[in-house]
Design a binder for these strands. Structure first.
Lengths: 349, 349
DNA sequence: GATTAGCACTTTGGATAAAGGAGTGCCAAA
DNA sequence: TTTGGCACTCCTTTATCCAAAGTGCTAATC
């Protein structure tokens, strides 16, 4: 595919700005990319591009900078879609290993992704609306402490150690565990609290300090996956020149990583039926300095989650999009293949 | 206790600089603290303090700034040791709750600590040399995925979900779990890998895909508590004026939080027999901009850990030290009391 | 008609200089 | 011993200038 002149120039402007973080003028563009036009011609094209809202000036006699629309157009029509071989190689290395969990595959993938793109990778953890209880264990680890562990049908593990003032008879624990597993297995997490409330009278028959155990179970389940987002490569943000001498902007980005508006956006994105990655340019939580790219990952029979790349608006969209597209595609294949090998799709635990 | 004039002036210099992050001169000191001396007198005292190495000039005609030694002297002799009532109140609120785990108490404590002091709180996680295996579980969560969960004698939980290509008979899992618990319970974590290697032939008798299970167990235990440090209030660092317009310094601090030199320092500190908090002023990992205060916490019969407050060299040492001293003392009492209630000190699981 | 050379104009950023402010050290007087 | 006074130093802010990079426009050229 060969681009017309206007598109070529826009492409160069975007790529120059992504690379140098400096507004770019007509002459610079010619020098950098050896364009066979005069600077006046470039200026005329730039004037047109600006009227279309694709590029902007920072002041009346400055060079041009891509606008959000410009980035968008670049992502949709101009980028090269070139996948880094190093990414392919690193990813294959991970997926070729014999044994690993979903969580670990996602973690390693994100680490590579962050490293290759210099962006922050975010992966969504389990949603309590999707998870079901697979197994509960109570482990007595000292005369007055018990650790409750529960595993969901997708392999997420949550635990809480609690202290009880009176000792508990080990046999009580065994029967308690049996009871809980019998009654609660397969229950969606968000219904657990209610179910446990219903179980309270039954517990009384099984265990002496039923009240404490009951309280502890309640708290354990209430706290399910309170930190739903895992972040990788957070410190990459420091390397962006737009934040040198502007700690406030940087601070705002870091805050975005901590509060849950990001989670909300990711949840929305994973619900959409778009198969393509969703690119948000300077519109994340109202912060014009931040862009995100979110893609779904299908975990085979285990549902789906999403991975987001987050960085400054001036991020390398081509690299990031290509990497994320490649990665999610490979992961989808990988998880699908695992399902095939494992026989029929997982029935309820 | 009433201070002599020299100490009074040093105290004011330190406190002014902590508050305003600006070098302080003789006249400013008089204005701010209504001192009954002339500026010339103050200057003479300052001259003496500088000769003793307690304060410094940033240039020949600048005001004074505390040196590391100055801060040290301040911590040892001049600070007020005033504990914030809000801290007392918040902490009591936590400790009065009926049910919570060690981890949670430490977590909540650190969150309060960070909030009150505007510093980063760091708490050390379990040490694999101290932890013993209390319980192993294998939970089959779908035809081809199994989650291995293990709990240590102090209630730390580690897990790994792994994918096996062939289905496993549920009864095999049960006998495998029994076997593992029989043979491994009470084993120190760092010996687990070897013990499992020794168990390999026995596993063969119990489970068809023994090789995969064996591999998976190995990996699970190899990965124990790889992130040994929990951080709270990381973003507080952004609020320090010394980092405005100096992203590099900030970056260096963030890097310090990620790499493990901090962990090493904390491990050393917890080994020392000092009962007092250990204050490191501008000497953490060779970074002159960082100070830390580390205090041990005795977890009753569960050994001990340490909490570190980390911030810029210009931190409020009085507030931080007082808060940390108060907090650790209360926690020590709290955990000791729990032990009493629980009967004899915890025998091996 | 599209392209380009040429030119006037705008804005930024860096350098330089001047002025003001906050501070010091020292000396002599109280 | 303390303090008023003073000369001196260095940083910071403000103003000014100038070069660099850029634009838009117009007229000439291909």
């Amino acid at each position: 595919m060969t681009l017309n002149r206007s598109d070529t120039i826009l492409k160069h402007i975007v790529e120059y700005f992504i690379k140098h973080a400096q507004p770019v003028g007509s002459q610079t563009l010619i020098d950098e990319y050896h364009l066979p036009y005069s600077s006046a011609t470039i200026r005329n094209e730039m004037f047109a591009l600006e009227k279309q809202g694709l590029i902007e000036k920072t002041h009346s006699s400055s060079g041009r900078v891509p606008s959000s629309q410009g980035y968008r157009y670049y992502c949709d029509h101009l980028r090269d879609k070139s996948v880094d071989n190093e990414l392919k190689y690193s990813l294959q290395n991970i997926l070729d290993e014999k044994i690993h969990s979903i969580e670990e595959v996602l973690k390693s993938s994100c680490e590579i992704l962050s490293q290759m793109t210099s962006l922050v990778s975010v992966v969504m953890g389990p949603d309590e609306k999707e998870e079901q209880l697979a197994n509960v264990q109570l482990v007595q680890i000292s005369p007055n402490t018990i650790t409750a562990v529960f595993v969901t049908n997708r392999g997420y593990v949550e635990n809480k150690t609690f202290i009880i003032e009176k000792g508990i008879n080990p046999s009580e624990i065994v029967s308690c565990v049996t009871l809980l597993n019998d009654r609660l297995k397969g229950t969606p997490i968000y219904q657990l609290v209610d179910k446990i409330k219903a179980l309270k009278p039954v517990l009384n028959d099984y265990i002496v300090s039923h009240d404490l155990v009951y309280q502890a179970l309640l708290e354990t389940f209430l706290r399910f996956a309170s930190d739903r987002l895992s972040l990788y490569g957070r410190d990459e943000l420091f390397n962006n020149p737009e934040f040198k001498n502007d700690t406030d902007k940087l601070h705002r980005m870091f805050r975005l990583l901590n509060d849950n508006s990001l989670l909300k956006e990711m949840e929305e994105d994973v619900k959409s039926d778009s198969e393509e990655p969703i690119v948000k340019i300077g519109e994340v939580d109202g912060n014009p300095d931040v862009s995100t790219i979110t893609a779904k990952v299908k975990l085979g029979s285990e549902g789906e989650t999403s991975i987001t790349l987050l960085g400054p608006t001036r991020m390398d969209y081509d690299k990031a999009l290509s990497a994320l597209e490649y990665l999610t595609e490979e992961l989808n294949k990988y998880f699908a293949k695992l399902d095939d090998k494992g026989g029929k799709n997982g029935g309820d635990a």
